[in-house]
Amino acid sequence: MTKNPPKFSCPCAVSEHGKPETTGRALPGNATPLSLACGRERLKVCRINGDRKLCARMAQLGVLPGSEIEMICPGRSKQCMVRVMGSTVTLDPLCAEHILVTPL
């Protein structure tokens, strides 16, 4: 089926967007769940907890450790609206409380 497949290796993926960002064992002291972030405009994702499906769904949307998100409507323990990779995404409290962020 495969004929001369083009092979890409992506240095960016490994060195810049890969391991260093996801090895976040020690959380910054000011990390808070996204559900509690209020009024902070730009945030950095430092960890995603929760079950495997949720982590996968978040990763698919580009909400990965190291990525930046912008708060549009803070949830204050309710659902919130954020901008991720140019798209506006709504997250309910169950999702938002699993995303730990720090202010940028």
Binding site: V14, H17, G18, T22, L64
Partner: peptide, 11 residues
């Protein structure tokens, strides 16, 4: 799947 997504976005 998170690592795979990360590498796709990296690409």
């Amino acid at each position: 799947e998170a690592i795979i997504a990360d590498h796709r976005y990296g690409y």
